[in-house]
Design a protein around this nucleic acid. Structure first.
Length: 855
RNA sequence: GCCCGGGUGGUGGAAUGGUUUACACGCACGACUUAAAAUCGUGUGCCGCAAGGCAUGUGGGUUCGACUCCCACCCCGGGCACCA
């Protein structure tokens, strides 16, 4: 057998006969949309792609044979930064580089022999595709979901572009590992935060790995609490040095001081309103506007009483200078000591008890979250505890774990759990959860604050200052301002510029193309300029799964009826690295399009599975510099496609991946060769039998039949559960057994091929046709098993003494306990164990074991 | 620090609370061969000549019986990380 010749032969025939060409509807068949995450055209199909697509193809072939009309498309996520970087490195235009890669990768993908419907191929960098990406942008814009703003953004100085929060890993650029800095820049954002709650709630109904759901939950980071205002007042004491104990000295606030009260207030967000009576100071982030006001020359935004009141201006300025110099990574390092300085001369007033508390500036408070200011209740928060201990501030216990015993423990660390309130005025005695409710009500009633929900999720920054992306369809007119391009003018084509290099100053290379930039205002016709930023490539991939249902449509992103046939996606397979990026964005897009009436479903991917990561033979991540990369093309040359895909299925649990074992693949190669030889023998034998007996009845082979039916059950269930490894091992067991039989039926031989077909499609198809079959094996029905045949008539009964296996006998199924006991006690081996012992107890498990307990 | 996932032979890995080590790789021996490769057969957890004993990261617990359930700890991988 020459696997490569045979495999090529079948790929040609499959293509010629178009057996993978998908019809939108087939009578009496349910549609099944099976999708793999489309590859980025990096230039080579690596083993990770194979691990993703190979076993995924096993699943979709199985579904097809199980009676579904399966859509299994493929395409290319063709825009993006790496194409550009690689193109720059090699001096090739990104477009040429990308399309050249698509060409080679298409050949590689075809060599896998997967059942893709190539007629539905999509390329996100093609104008007929990105026309609709731009159309999506316009819908977002028209509905207030796309907006432009100047704000601090993550800037990668190597890639010369801004990055979404999701693309910053450990404070570094996801792509090139360069330290990300903050830079003020005009940018486009999508309002994903509007969908935070729905993105959270709808996770419940999805058949997704729990881990992936958890990661999205954490990324969205919902926390419920309250926002409350602390009024600011000049320090009542001359000596601002006494920070300690001043919270205990309640200052009865007379009418005079009330009148002098400042209009300035600091809002804080807390999830632990129940600890408010334990608040002994406030902390604001260095970038908080209040600090800036205190320090600035004009002192705008400050009440007259507060102007010029800061007594340690220099100290504060110095601290803030230092904080600015720190990178995000340094600032968020938990191991670091919590530094900070007091704002001397000002105090904040706790709205619940009118106590004056000190205000600190510290970089352990983040300017970007909540209000950029927190109330510190050091007895009940670890960070506040640490800060208070270091700066010798008052720690006041207001939550007691020992209620109703009035004695609270002396704390050695912060007590952060819920408990009962003490020393909390009218709220004393309440449980934490109850107190939070009542206190929030009280805040609202007195107009001092309100309930508030905060999210970690930020709006999605989609503009990139790079060439190789979808142009943002926006025009800037001197008269009309920001004007969206008219839908009929789409696509706004990416010009074929010569100079696509990114620029230092944070402008897209498109800005240099006058032909592109200068245009007319779609509204008033006056001279106008185009937006030159392009979109984040994740925008392209947020809706691609819709396009496969109607990839050639020029009037709509996809026809509604056609989408209805397939969507949402029934099974989505891809890497776990997309847990928060692509998978969150695609969900967001789906919800928006659903709201706008274009889709009748709210979640894009009903079921999701991840493949694991394959490590090099050395147990390290594969990389060219380490020289531990496994080249799938080489493997195919040596072992054939079927052996490679089968080994990928066999090497371990699909979602766990693992270290590449260079010799392991020999096992599946040998297995396939054994099948080949076995069928050559079987054919000969059957030809003889056919002449003699016309037909060999499969009922002659009762034991083999049982194993066959068991295997049908096992393989089907295993594939359904993505347990490809054990499915293959049961096929191996079956072949081992079949080889021992000296007569075989045609029916059984054909049945085995059907079980094999999803794993080794080429070989199975070849052998199938050698039986004289004319239609492809993939147009056959997956075999059904007979549950009655699976039951054993006899089984090995385990005999245990004190829970240890000492003997076993083969007995008939359904044997009674009494019979078993007699049988067992009569055995010499067991008798020896019972000599001089007293039988305490006998455990009998029907059709399994007997355990004699002695002492 | 927190949240997941994992720890089983020489290796990859199997095991509804019931035979630990399926299946495969590797290794050893044998057959075929002038020889080698390929193939086929046999064996292969550890200790021991054997009887037997001991083995699923460590230590406890529940149970007639624990890889599996509970508690504590150690190690590896992944994610999050001052989110108030």
């Amino acid at each position: 057998m020459n696997p490569r010749k045979l495999e090529k032969k079948w790929r040609v025939i499959w293509k010629r006969e178009g057996i993978y060409k998908v019809k939108d509807k087939i009578k009496d068949k349910k549609n099944f949309y099976h999708l793999v995450m489309f590859p980025y055209p990096s230039g080579d199909l690596h083993i990770g792609h194979w691990y993703n697509f190979g076993p995924a193809d096993v699943f979709s072939r199985f579904k097809k044979m199980s009676g579904f009309n399966v859509l299994s498309p493929i395409g290319f996520d063709a825009f993006g930064l790496p194409a550009e970087n690689a193109a720059i490195k090699r001096g090739i235009h990104p477009k040429n580089w990308t399309y050249k890669n698509i060409k080679t990768m298409t050949v590689q993908l075809e060599s896998m022999g997967n059942m893709y419907d190539w007629s539905r191929k999509i390329i996100t960098a093609a104008p007929e595709y990105y026309k609709w990406t731009q159309w999506m942008f316009l819908q977002f814009y028209k509905n207030g979901l796309a907006y432009r703003k100047k704000a601090s953004a993550n800037w990668c100085s190597k890639c010369h572009t801004v990055l979404a929060n999701e693309q910053v890993v450990d404070g570094k650029c996801e792509r090139c590992d360069t330290q990300v800095i903050q830079r003020e820049i005009e940018q486009w954002l999508f309002k994903i935060t509007d969908y935070a709650d729905r993105l959270l709630d709808d996770l419940n109904d999805l058949d997704w790995p729990g881990k992936t759901k958890t990661m999205q939950i954490n990324w969205i980071g919902k926390s419920e609490g309250a926002i409350l205002n602390f009024k600011i007042t000049p320090s009542a004491r001359n000596s601002a040095e006494q920070t300690r104990n001043n919270a205990e000295n309640k200052l009865p606030r007379d009418s005079a001081s009330s009148q002098r009260e400042s209009a300035t207030a600091i809002a804080v967000f807390t999830t632990r309103l129940d600890t408010i009576f334990g608040c002994t100071y406030l902390v604001v982030a260095p970038e908080h506007s209040f600090v800036a006001s205190l320090l600035s020359a004009e002192q705008r935004g400050l009440n007259a009483d507060l102007r010029g009141i800061l007594r340690n201006k220099e100290e504060v300025e110095k601290y803030i200078e230092n904080a600015k110099k720190k990178t995000d990574l340094m600032r968020t390092d938990l191991a670091k000591e919590k530094t900070g300085v007091e704002l001397k001369g000002v105090k904040a007033i706790n709205p619940f008890n009118n106590e004056e508390v000190s205000i600190f500036v510290s970089d352990y408070v983040l300017g970007s979250y909540g209000t950029g200011a927190v109330m510190a209740a050091p007895a009940h928060d670890e960070r506040d505890w640490e800060f208070a201990k270091k700066h010798d501030l008052l720690i006041k216990i207001v939550i007691c774990p020992n209620w109703p015993a009035p004695i609270c423990p002396v704390l050695e660390k912060a007590f952060v759990d819920d408990g009962h309130l003490i020393n909390s005025g009218e709220f004393t005695g309440l449980k934490s959860a109850e107190a939070r409710e009542k206190m929030a009500d009280w805040l609202g009633k007195n107009k001092l604050g309100e309930r508030k929900i905060n999210y970690k999720l930020r709006d999605w920054l989609i503009s990139r200052q790079r060439y190789w992306g979808t142009p943002i369809p926006i025009v800037y007119c001197e008269k009309c301002g920001i004007v969206p391009v008219s839908e009929k003018d789409l696509p706004i084509k990416l010009p074929d510029v010569k100079n696509y290099l990114p620029t230092e100053e944070g402008k897209s290379p498109l800005a240099k193309s006058e032909k592109f930039v200068n245009t007319k205002c779609p509204k008033c016709g006056a001279k106008a300029k185009r937006e030159t930023d392009t979109m984040d490539t994740f925008v392209c991939s947020s809706w691609y799964y819709l396009r496969y249902t109607d990839p050639k449509n020029n009037k709509k992103f996809a026809d509604a009826k056609k989408m209805k046939n397939w969507l949402p996606v029934d099974m989505y397979i891809g890497g776990a690295e997309h847990s928060v990026l692509h998978l969150l964005y695609a969900r967001f897009f789906t919800k928006v399009l659903n709201d706008l009436g274009y889709l009748n479903f709210k979640e894009p991917f009903s079921a999701l599975r991840h493949q694991g990561i394959i490590l090099g033979p050395d147990g390290q991540k594969m990389s060219k510099s380490r020289g531990n990369v496994i080249d799938p093309d080489e493997l195919v040359k040596k072992f054939g496609v079927d052996a490679v895909r089968m080994y990928l299925c066999f090497m371990g649990q699909y979602d766990q991946g693992g270290q590449w074992n260079p010799t392991g693949i020999l096992g599946t190669k040998r297995f396939l060769e054994r099948i080949w030889r076995f069928y050559a023998d079987a054919k000969l034998q059957m030809r003889q039998n056919l002449q003699k007996n016309k037909f060999v009845d499969s009922r002659q082979f009762v034991n083999l039949n049982r194993l066959l039916h068991q295997t049908v059950k096992k393989v089907g269930e295993d594939i359904e559960n993505f347990r490809f490894n054990t499915a293959i091992s049961s096929l191996m067991i079956l072949l081992n057994e079949m080889e021992k039989q000296n007569q075989l039926s045609i029916i059984n031989c054909q049945l085995f091929l059907k079980l094999l077909a999803p794993f080794a499609p080429h070989l199975a198809e070849e052998l199938w046709h050698q039986f004289g079959e004319k239609k492809s094996i993939f147009l056959q029905q997956w075999p059904k098993y007979n549950p009655k045949l699976i039951k054993k008539e006899q089984f090995d009964l385990i005999i245990q003494i004190n829970g240890k296996m000492r003997d076993k006998i083969t007995v008939s199924s359904g044997i009674s306990q009494k019979e078993t006991e007699e049988l067992v006690k009569g055995r010499e081996k067991i008798k020896n164990y019972l000599v001089g012992k007293k039988i305490v107890k006998i455990i009998f498990v029907q059709d399994k074991l007997i355990n004699i307990v002695v002492n």
